[in-house]
């Protein structure tokens, strides 16, 4: 499963000599962190679930095998989204990306089921 390329959006704290580093990103408040956590945990699970369902529909061949492949990969997707939620600099961009992925995979899944049905 191809994951989105992660761009590390902040300078590692140890690049700045002298001052002890902040616990969170410089300038980020609690609100931003809360949004990241929301994106990561419930958001991440939703995105991983939709991606899994989409993969399970789109992988060709035996349905059970496709299901298994998609499910095996799902945890890597979930971990990837959670790590992404804390590495992208912009929280807004993060949410936009996740919503876009959810919309595309969700739409594709729904369309596939509507056209092909389930076993």
């Amino acid at each position: 499963m191809h994951k989105a390329v992660v761009r590390l959006g902040y300078l590692p704290a140890r690049a700045r000599r002298g001052a002890p580093p902040p616990l969170r990103e410089k300038g980020e408040g609690r609100g931003a962190t809360a949004l990241r956590i929301l994106a990561a945990v419930p958001g991440g699970y939703a995105v991983a679930s939709l991606a899994t369902a989409c993969l399970a529909r789109l992988i060709p061949g035996d349905r059970a095998a496709a299901t298994v492949t998609a499910t095996l990969a799902s945890f890597a997707v979930l971990a990837g989204v959670i790590v992404l939620s804390f590495s992208l600099r912009s929280v807004l961009r993060l949410w936009l990306i996740l919503i876009a992925i959810a919309a595309v995979t969700g739409g594709a899944t729904w369309l596939s089921i509507a056209l092909g049905g389930r076993l």
């Binding site: 499910t71 389930r118 076993l119």
Partner: peptide, 25 residues
């Protein structure tokens, strides 16, 4: 992975109307 279908059942749901159908397959 050992409990994958419990934690991430949506691949099963996408392809099979009931989980039982998946396990039967």
């Amino acid at each position: 992975v050992t409990l994958a279908t419990m934690y991430m059942p949506w691949g099963v749901t996408a392809n099979f109307t009931t989980p039982a159908a998946f396990f039967e397959a």
